[in-house]
Design a protein around this nucleic acid. Structure first.
Length: 552
RNA sequence: UGGGAUGUAGCCAAGUGGUAAGGCACGGGACUUUGACUCCCGCAUGCGAAGGUUCAAAUCCUUCCAUCCCAGCCA
């Protein structure tokens, strides 16, 4: 359940006796434009729109805001639906397009003309811009502002009929050219655009502008609360003007909240698009991107994303949440669900010198240390193992309690071993770590209660699985890529993707079912890549590392 | 004297006249067959600033300061 917030305070007033929506069921909508993929900022809006409806036992519609055919594609529609569903929300049969209401909008526009509240303007785009005035100076009225409504009506009908070229004339609301709010300076509400619409095809030559269309869409769907981001705050007077002056069937209220920002990344569709189109990343679903498809591919769970939004809260304060917090939320969720396996990313040989060459044993590893009911799996052990390169130090650092000559360490679930040294090549590089196992410590149990501080992970060289592993890090190396003076493309973290071509994984991973991915013990959470992984060449993405509090 | 918003800890954020919740981060400690998880402890004499009202102010009033958004025939 959503925690209370300022939006709910307003709704509480609206639905109580004497309120604007007294007696009505709370009804919201999520209205993306189908011109790109959804990102985690949209997930916040989805959470607020659907979550608010749910809290009040109301309804939330999914609506494609498709009033600009030059930018919209039907492929995005399906992707958006998939992402919303993935987050766990359902719109039942209430799926709409703004274009469902094109005829209604057209009629409301005629109504405005007849009320002398709109007029056909013959100024060019440039003239409109120049006569709009500036932030501190009022605009000057269009010379066509006072033309006879009957003439505007005739012209408007001929606009629809296709008698005028694209961009030649517009329909404008007649409001106030000297308003301090630029949106009220006789905004254009219809333009001529010969573009094939993804749904209505070539039926229409004129298309409504957002400010005119959106309140009508909301009213036609009987939305009670139209929740959007802060940037639309100064559009609200125009929203209200449309609702008030068109004979729409309901009285929706627009409420604005702060959009989500996360540091070390960018959220704007435009910037994401550039990175995709210039090949800086591997498509819209690149696991480093904050797109929902990217995060899904990376291995984020929808539950973690919802929790993240839940805990961030809803306010009007411009906010940039720390990336750390997102990572905290995924770790918390994956810690509950992920099956534990062992995998070695940077392998070095470990040879158990006193373990027979031809012997193999099998040990049992729990799938989850806290939840025995999640079962266990087998792992094989032999004289020749792989371990993590940094689990051995010839000269141990302070408080290092992994392998170093003379030290005892537990090979998780197998045996305690004592490190006896290492082998090096002629350049002095360590090529192999040597140890002796303690037969009485079978299963990893320390005999005589001896303390073994370090436990490390390992795999059997004989039967481990080779896999490619992608290690991801922050996409940008600065906190706020948007505000840096430099071109944001130059701020990309060159180590945001590190490919490990041949990691060694325990073979059981091929049989284990774990829909939310795996924890590679002591390393992090990993998810098989849905796009690149094949049976012959598995590819795993690192979702997030484990927290690591080791400080030498 | 353009309009609209926003200021509570490093980051989110509760608080609605009764004496600053919570989470993340950070620092300590316990536990541990993952240096994970879990569990304890610490972390704003202070709420953008200054005045004022009040027994009492983050909350009310006044003035000031800072930051963000708006001049698409985009959404």
């Amino acid at each position: 359940m959503m925690a209370g917030n300022f939006i709910h305070d307003i709704i509480d007033d609206d639905i109580s006796e004497g309120g604007r929506h007294f007696g009505l069921r709370v009804h919201t909508r999520f209205p993306p434009e189908p011109n790109g993929y959804l990102h985690i900022g949209h997930a916040k809006a989805i959470y607020i729109d659907f979550g608010t409806a749910k809290k009040y036992g109301g309804l939330c519609n999914l609506r494609m805001d498709d009033t600009n055919p030059s930018k919209e594609k039907t492929t995005y529609v399906e992707a958006i639906k998939e992402d919303v569903k993935w987050l766990g929300y359902d719109w039942d049969d209430r799926f709409y397009y703004a274009s469902d209401f094109f005829e209604d909008m057209y009629l409301f526009a005629e109504e405005l003309i007849q009320k002398d509240l709109a007029f056909v303007c013959e100024q060019t785009a440039e003239e409109v811009r120049l006569s709009r005035g500036t932030l501190t100076q009022p605009g000057t009225p269009s010379p066509w502002r006072d033309r006879d409504p009957a003439e505007s009506l005739d012209l408007f009908r001929r606009m629809r009929a296709g008698e005028f070229p694209d961009g030649s004339i517009t329909l404008r609301a007649k409001i106030d050219m000297s308003s301090g709010n630029m949106n009220m300076r006789d905004p254009v509400i219809y333009r001529i655009m010969r573009a094939t619409h993804h749904r209505t095809g070539d039926d229409w030559l004129i298309y409504p502008m957002y400010d005119f269309a959106h309140p009508i869409e909301d009213a036609m769907e009987h939305i009670t609360h139209s929740l959007c981001t802060i940037e639309f705050e100064d559009h609200r007077p125009l929203y209200d003007w449309v609702i008030e002056n068109c004979s729409v069937p309901s009285n929706p209220r627009q409420i604005e909240f702060a959009p989500l920002g996360i540091n070390y990344t960018v959220m704007s569709k435009r910037k994401l698009r550039v990175m995709v189109e210039e090949g800086i990343v591997d498509g819209w679903d690149d696991p480093r991107l904050p797109t929902l498809c990217g995060m899904r591919r990376r291995g984020y769970t929808p539950e973690a994303i919802i929790k993240f939004n839940q805990r961030n809260g809803v306010s009007k304060v411009p906010s940039t949440v720390e990336f750390d917090f997102l990572e905290f939320c995924v770790r918390e969720d994956l810690n509950e669900r992920a099956t534990r396996v062992m995998g070695v990313l940077d392998p070095i040989k470990l040879t158990i010198e006193n373990y027979p060459e031809d012997m193999t044993e099998t040990f049992i590893v729990d799938n989850h240390p806290q939840y025995p009911d999640q079962g266990s799996h087998e792992i094989s052990f032999s004289r020749h193992l792989w371990i993590e390169r940094d689990d051995f130090m010839e000269e141990p650092a302070r408080k290092y309690f992994r392998l170093y000559p003379g030290n005892e360490v537990r090979l998780r679930a197998a045996y305690i071993v004592r490190c006896t040294g290492c082998k090096k090549d002629e350049d002095g590089n360590i090529t192999e770590v040597l140890a002796e196992y303690i037969p009485e410590s079978k299963g990893g149990v320390a005999p005589d209660g001896q303390k073994v501080k370090g436990t490390i992970h390992w795999v059997n060289r004989k039967d481990c699985l080779n896999a490619e592993v992608h290690l991801y890090d922050k996409l940008f190396n600065v906190e706020d890529p948007d505000s840096e003076g430099a071109e944001y493309k130059d701020l990309i973290n060159s180590e945001s993707l590190i490919v490990v071509p041949e990691a060694k994984l325990e073979s059981a991973i091929q049989e284990l079912e774990s829909p939310s991915g795996f924890q590679f013990m002591r390393l992090g959470y990993f998810k098989e890549d849905s796009k690149l992984s094949t049976p012959d060449k598995p590819v795993f993405n690192r979702v997030v590392t484990l927290r690591d509090t080791y400080k030498p």
